[in-house]
């Protein structure tokens, strides 16, 4: 049931994805969403907040567990996905599409993986 891993995105070891847009869109991977189970609550930073690559910027809670959201980039949050906050199940059903979490005006990026590297990390 894991969605195909898009090859055009960048990934982090903490299971976030990032695109090349300006602003850049941030989400969590299908692997992360599947591992959490049904996501029931998202806590995301406020629009305008300055975030730092590698720092915790939110929480993703499922019936079974809770996981922290780490920012893959430093910059300013310019938009949060209110539809996903209202109905977090879209993060499970469409993690790379309607289940996106943040749009960020990026000043610098943290360590990123290619889709091949991310797949290799999760193979074992």
């Amino acid at each position: 049931m894991t969605a195909e891993l898009p090859t055009h995105l960048h990934y982090t070891v903490e299971h976030e994805w990032l695109d090349d847009g300006a602003p850049a869109t941030v989400g969590i991977t299908g692997i992360a969403a599947d591992a959490l189970g049904d996501i029931v609550y998202l806590e995301l930073p406020a629009v305008g907040e300055e975030i730092t690559a590698g720092a915790v910027v939110g929480e993703i809670e499922s019936t079974k567990s809770v996981s922290e959201l780490y920012s893959p980039v430093s910059g300013t949050v310019v938009e949060v996905n209110q539809a996903a906050v209202d109905d977090p199940s879209v993060v499970n059903s469409d993690p790379y599409g309607q289940g996106w979490l943040l749009k960020v005006e990026v000043t610098s990026t943290g360590p990123l993986l290619t889709s091949e590297e991310y797949t290799a990390q999760n193979a074992g």
């Binding site: 049931m1 599947d34 189970g37 049904d38 029931v40 499922s62 019936t63 079974k64 499970n92």
Partner: peptide
Amino acid sequence: LGAALTSFAGWQMPLRYTSDIAEH
């Protein structure tokens, strides 16, 4: 059935098949 398996008390057991909430 495509279950997600988990290690529980020394056993490989199904954690969920599709969705925790749907099963509940």
